[in-house]
Design a protein around this nucleic acid. Structure first.
Lengths: 148, 148
DNA sequence: CTCTTCTATTTGTATATGCAAATAGATGCG
DNA sequence: CGCATCTATTTGCATATACAAATAGAAGAG
């Protein structure tokens, strides 16, 4: 009885979070290195990209897409507004929401960043492989399907 | 000519870093939620696990395994020593290195944490699938093989 | 209309993360 | 030995991240 559980020494190699987090650091650094000359990191780059796609972005919506805590987004947007890349949209009827959108400068930044982003993207693709990308998508889809 | 490059609106969905980082947040939260009653997060849990495996751990070695910046580890170890989970090993000949090991309390914490860790591990496995895990390993191996 | 409740966001606080620069000890050359 | 250099770690600084609590506005019951 009482299955031996797991033995402590084996966790270091078997922990999924440990490996995923390590890979995440590697890939994040790939993009951050490529983007450094532009003065932006991929964390904010992804917010810019979603904002570009949405036109007018509601915080809750962006958080859902990025699986990001609302308080985290709140601070990031704050910095990005300070940088002149985003602007709060006056009003949309609901006084609680603070929708935001790209400024002209924010859009210019994105356009300038595309070549660097593509270089990092190519490296990341090589690291993960086509099947890696497929799995990434599958896992994320499962994430959103998971009943809370 | 001049390939149309990428159009800005498409980056949000195609960026590998964006998706990997989102997945990383989901999985990290799975473990952090499970471990919360124990007062430890998976970030430190992984350091404990590697230390358990190594016995005496040199910072540089741990950083290599976790793909973690040395300054990040330095601060994390500092907090974990303060928590009583790790202790600096007196000396090993090289005065520059600060090897550390688990304290008895640190080992007790790990043992107590195993069931929670396993619950999170099971959820993560379901999210990634067996092929997801295989790909994760393959990508990480490639990481370390990459010529600097 | 007003009170309760619900929802969207921000604020307080703490950890995690990485770059650049500072330290400090080891190592090799003359 | 003494200096230049290399290596391991820490410190200074800024961003990223999340939980809990605070705000503030919307929405429904009566």
């Amino acid at each position: 009885m009482t299955k031996p559980s797991v033995d402590i020494e084996s966790i270091a190699v078997s922990c999924i979070a440990g490996r995923l987090r390590a890979l995440n650091r590697v890939v994040t650094n790939l993009y951050d290195d490529a983007l450094r000359p532009l003065g932006v990191k991929i964390s904010q780059g992804n917010i810019l990209a979603i904002t570009a796609k949405l036109g007018t972005a509601r915080p809750a919506e962006v958080c859902e897409m990025l699986q990001l805590d609302t308080s985290t987004l709140s601070r990031n947007v704050e910095r990005m507004v300070a940088n002149g890349w985003l602007e709060i949209v006056p009003d949309d009827g609901d006084g609680r929401s603070q929708p935001f959108r790209l400024t002209a400068e924010g859009r210019r930044l994105m356009e300038k960043a595309i070549p660097a982003w593509q270089r990092a993207q190519t490296q990341a693709k090589k690291l993960l492989g086509d099947d890696g990308l497929a799995l990434l998508n599958a896992a994320l889809k499962r994430t959103r399907a998971t009943p809370d």
